[in-house]
Design a binder for these strands. Structure first.
Lengths: 103, 103
DNA sequence: ATCGTCCATCGTCAATCGACGATGAAGTGT
DNA sequence: ACACTTCATCGTCGATTGACGATGGACGAT
């Protein structure tokens, strides 16, 4: 029998993409921890984070890169060090995306 | 100089773990799409989802398994088919975890 | 100019993910 | 018993992730 394609068979839309992107950034416990550290302002400098975490410096830098790529964290160079801080607006937007799931 | 370990150097705690788990389940756009389809009650049966998505049946089943493992979706066997539905309480808990990030 | 510090990046490796076809288990209908 | 449907699982493959040591670039101090 010939099957007629009645449905759109559509993939995820832009909002799904955005939520998935943000979720992916939070999909690792250590990144959640790092984001909470930044939100608590306990530490903003990469070296300080390395001291507080059981990870090598390169690994922390990688996680920060992921969080920054997702827009959840901003980083400004301050002399030889880099000062990171959580982007509360971006976090709020992500919360909004998740909250909008239930319409 | 002898460095004294003053900080706890602690990894993520239980809440970080839980949030990361949920986020990981949503870390793929197609899973977000599927969860929204289930929330909208457009389709609850796996075959129906396959019809609405540009994915093979095995792939949809895999994504459903991930969502179910994360507790965001429940599935009950109904004769030869399986009826899936979104767990709104679990989703609300995840929203709460994300919302609690900003304290 | 030469250190030493701080950080990003590179290269590598094992592990995991995402997608699929193929197979099989469980149920329904004849 | 047999065929058919529906779905989960297996096995495979390429791609991505997460972790690390090593390297190098940028800056501050001597």
């Amino acid at each position: 029998m010939i099957e007629v394609m009645t449905t759109t068979s559509a993939g995820p839309d832009q909002l799904d993409l955005a939520l998935a992107m943000g979720a992916k950034a939070l999909a690792h416990p250590m990144r959640v921890r790092i984001l909470r550290l930044l939100l608590a302002r306990t530490e903003c400098v990469c070296g300080g984070l390395v001291d507080e975490l059981p990870l090598a410096q390169a690994t922390v830098s990688q996680h920060l890169k992921v969080l920054k790529a997702a827009g959840l964290v901003r980083g400004e160079v301050d002399g030889p060090r880099t000062r990171y801080c959580a982007d509360r607006d971006a976090i709020a937007r992500l919360q909004g995306l998740l909250g909008a799931l239930g319409q």
